[in-house]
């Protein structure tokens, strides 16, 4: 299942906190898709979930200055 989070216009570290909250209710192999226009988030969010959780992460640029950050809950 995919969980979508709208994080446009949020400031750091709200995107990370929103994903962490969603991960708590998500099931294994669910994907969290966060939409963000915060350029720093593309580094900080991905970095946080890869190094701290070991979850695969992907960044897709969907428009100029808007990214989808996809985190898969693997465990």
């Amino acid at each position: 299942m995919d969980h979508h989070i709208d994080s446009l216009g949020d400031i750091c570290p709200i995107p990370i906190i929103k994903i962490e909250q969603k991960l708590k209710v998500a099931n294994r192999s669910d994907r969290i898709i966060l939409e963000s226009d915060h350029s720093c988030s593309t580094s900080s969010v991905v970095n946080h979930f890869i190094t701290k959780y070991g979850y695969p992460a992907e960044i897709i640029k969907v428009a100029e200055g808007i990214w989808h950050i996809v985190i898969t809950k693997t465990s």
Binding site: V46, I60, K61, W67
Partner: peptide, 12 residues
Amino acid sequence: MLELPVVSSDIN
């Protein structure tokens, strides 16, 4: 070292 995923683009 952490390798960040490459940004793939959907913009046409």
